[in-house]
Amino acid sequence: MKKYIGRAGRYLYYLILLIWTVVSIFPLYWMILFSFKDNSEIFGKSALSLPESWDITNYVEALTKGQMGRYFLNSILVTGVTIFLTVAIALMASYAVSRLLWKGRTVLNNIFMLGLTLPIHAALLPVFLILRSMRMLNTFSSLFIPYTAFALAMAIMICNSFMMNIPEELEESACMDGCGTFGIFFRIIVPLMKPAISTIAIFTFLQAWNELMFATVFVSDSAHRTLTVGMQSLVGTYSTNWGPIGAALVIATIPTVIVYLFMSKKVQDSLVAGAIKG
């Protein structure tokens, strides 16, 4: 009897898993379908039917008239610079607080760690006013500087935990061979921190690529708009024409999906590393 309950339980559990699988990917699947359809097909036929032809006019429309091409490049630029700055600054700061000897290193590290819990809401208006007074609104730096600042806490924490595993003997022998502080950092520490760097890169990529609040407030001209805000304005223009909207959503999602397809384990590990140690 017990065996039968166990088996029924297992089937039931699989059923729940399957349902949740469908629920998890349905929006993505549906989005891809209607990005290839025109309005008559979207509204006239079943939502789940395959498009009659794999027509890319919606994509052309979204990329050119909808300016998604430009937004896409803007997002790549902002995200790329954010990742680079975050990695570089976090590596240096982490080395200074965890390996170099000076008064106040633990205090400073604790202040950095405080940044983990601070919501970005808190800084929205003051940073907006600062940027405005420095005439920096509507520039790329008005995005990647705040993004870097808010990604730093997590990045430093991840660096610290990886740096703990680098034996100090390595630095000592490099020192004996005549390396200075900068030499040790660039020749010994940075090469050994590659796993930390990729973890931070993934983390920062997701944050910067998907960020909405700063991007809405700090940039208002279409020349510097990133994808999240760009999509919002495109939806306004095409409110009744779903096809180009679908295409825009797919375009914005492609990089994330590619990263995830090729490194799903690494992406998952990165997000776990970010959470558990915090």
């Binding site: 700061a93 808190a122 808010f150």
Partner: peptide, 16 residues
């Protein structure tokens, strides 16, 4: 090593 991190942290998070 600390200058950029401290500047960003102070200017974009703490002071705001």
């Amino acid at each position: 090593f600390l200058l950029p991190a401290v500047l960003l942290f102070a200017g974009i998070i703490i002071i705001p």
